[in-house]
């Protein structure tokens, strides 16, 4: 179980949050020009990495705001937390980032 450092509220139990899935999936710039395979890639295909994953979280039982986590999916360790609109920080799975590590 993780303790998640909400950028507005500080570290809280994971139970207060909802995971919104993979982050930084960009909506196609020209949807009308997209073929079926392109739509499938946008709607369904996921990176699902064994390693560093960036996902969206919502503090549903707190401030109800969205933010991003960079996590190691093998250890569930949280490597970085950043707000929407902020540039994604570089993370290295071997060197834990600025955030409180997950438990």
């Amino acid at each position: 179980m993780m303790q998640i450092p909400c950028p507005w509220c500080g570290p809280r139990e994971q139970q207060e949050f909802r995971c919104g899935g993979e982050a930084h999936i960009v909506r196609p710039a020209d949807p009308a020009a997209l073929d079926d395979a392109g739509w499938a890639d946008y709607v369904f295909m996921r990176r699902n990495p064994r390693g560093i994953h960036r996902d969206m979280w919502n503090h549903v039982h707190g401030c109800r705001r969205w933010f991003y986590l960079a996590r190691d999916t093998v250890t569930d360790q949280i490597l970085a937390v950043y707000k929407v609109g902020e540039p994604p920080p570089e993370v290295d799975a071997d060197a834990p980032g600025t955030a409180e590590p997950g438990r």
């Binding site: 179980m1 993780m2 994971q14 139970q15 995971c19 899935g21 699902n48 093998v74 250890t75 569930d76």
Partner: peptide, 13 residues
């Protein structure tokens, strides 16, 4: 559990 993870563990909640 509702997040992507390869840890064979999961959350207590």
């Amino acid at each position: 559990d509702l997040y992507v993870s390869y840890a064979q563990r999961g959350g207590f909640n």
